[in-house]
């Protein structure tokens, strides 16, 4: 009960995403237990916790990517800008077009760099002229910090880039659909430290325009990039609060044990 209080405490009224009593089941196995978590607008929230604690599952609830999995069932309510995204009237495809997602492993499409970024805008038909599309692609790549590296290689396949570049391409691809929210599922787990540093820098810049939720296994990363941190354990949300507080003086013993590396 005190958990809920904490939640409400920390989030004033600038919460963009409000989750109430979210339960997730895979067939008969419950993966998430009554998650109450609010995510603030235009800030970075990191989800940490040991493997299998349900943080990725929770992330995938936000853009309903769990719908893809047949045996997965989501209960409770998740509201984005006060709109229940699990309401039957919600168009999932439209919902996802408002939320960008970056995956664990870079997954550029087997298309050119240009087509990778143009994929979303073309799909949603918001851009009609070739010039506008060119501009959109350039701007997205620029915001992902990739433009200078790939501006001469736009027609090369996206898969020919290095791992870090591929991941930034995927971020550019997500930005290109003008989302309000970007979800990142361990975006740096397949990257080397230098590429990781670049992505972290990028996340820091992006937070001025986007609400970012990032799942990460690296505590340092969570500490570096996020304003708020939520700690998950065994499908439960143990604690959420300002990143500084979570890492300096967490309320829960479990949280402390985890962030200090004694556990998990």
């Amino acid at each position: 009960m005190d958990k809920e209080l904490e939640n409400n405490n920390i989030i004033e009224n600038k919460a963009l995403i409000e989750c109430k009593n979210v339960d997730v089941f895979y067939a008969n196995q419950q993966a998430l237990f009554g998650i109450n978590l609010n995510i603030g607008e235009k800030e970075v929230t990191s989800l940490i916790g040991p493997s299998g604690c349900g943080k990725s599952t929770f992330l995938r609830c936000i853009n309903r990517m769990n719908d893809v999995i047949d045996i997965c069932r989501v209960e409770g309510s998740i509201k984005i800008s006060n709109e229940d995204i699990y309401h039957p009237d919600i168009d999932v495809v439209e919902l996802r077009s408002r939320i960008g997602m970056v995956f664990q492993k870079p997954n550029p499409f087997p298309k050119s760099v240009y087509d990778n970024v143009a994929y979303g805008p073309k799909l949603h038909g918001r851009i009609l002229h070739k010039d506008d599309l060119d501009e959109k692609v350039e701007k997205s790549l620029e915001r992902a910090g990739l433009w200078s590296e790939v501006k001469d290689r736009l027609s090369e396949p996206g898969t020919s880039l290095s791992g870090g570049q591929q991941q930034r391409l995927c971020i550019a691809r997500a930005i290109a659909i003008d989302p309000s929210i970007i979800l990142m599922d361990e975006p740096c787990s397949a990257l080397d430290p230098i590429a990781t540093a670049k992505i972290e820098e990028l996340i820091d810049e992006l937070k001025d325009n986007f609400t970012i939720t990032i799942v990460t296994h690296s505590m340092q990363q969570a500490a570096r990039v996020s304003q708020r941190t939520a700690f998950f354990h065994l499908g439960k949300l143990i604690e959420v609060g300002d990143t500084e507080k979570i890492f300096r003086s967490p309320d829960h013993e479990q949280t402390e044990a985890y962030v200090t590396g004694r556990y998990g």
Binding site: M65, R96, N107
Partner: peptide, 13 residues
């Protein structure tokens, strides 16, 4: 790879 399909779906396709 499923990741490609998920990537496309997540972009609102």
């Amino acid at each position: 790879p499923l990741s490609l399909r998920d990537g496309s779906l997540a972009l609102g396709a």
